[in-house]
């Protein structure tokens, strides 16, 4: 994979060394349950259009991303979170 973007393996390694590894914020806080009512937290994982941010971007682990997704969807059902933002409607 590195062959495409980088000329040498060393260059590839250097590029990734400088990048900080993302850690799941929910794991850091040892959260098990992500409540749908907690819009302040949920809003961090949604872009300005109201779309759920991808795991690769947010850095969440698979377990928490799954929980987060259901939480956001439940919040949307109860109009705690928007399906789309007001601005784009």
């Amino acid at each position: 994979m590195f062959k495409k973007r980088f000329k040498t393996p060393g260059e590839f390694k250097a590029a990734f060394k400088t990048r900080r590894r993302k850690v799941c914020r929910f794991c850091e806080e040892k959260v098990r349950v992500i409540g749908f009512y907690n819009d302040r937290v949920l809003r961090r994982f949604v872009n300005e259009r109201g779309k759920i941010v991808a795991r690769r971007v947010s850095g969440n682990c698979a377990f928490h991303q799954r929980r987060l997704t259901t939480a956001i969807k439940r919040a949307r059902h109860l109009a705690i979170m928007p399906f789309t933002s007001e601005y784009y409607r």
């Binding site: 929910f26 806080e29 098990r32 409540g35």
Partner: peptide, 9 residues
Amino acid sequence: EKIFDDADS
């Protein structure tokens, strides 16, 4: 158990 919201935050 710790809920992200609630008393904690």
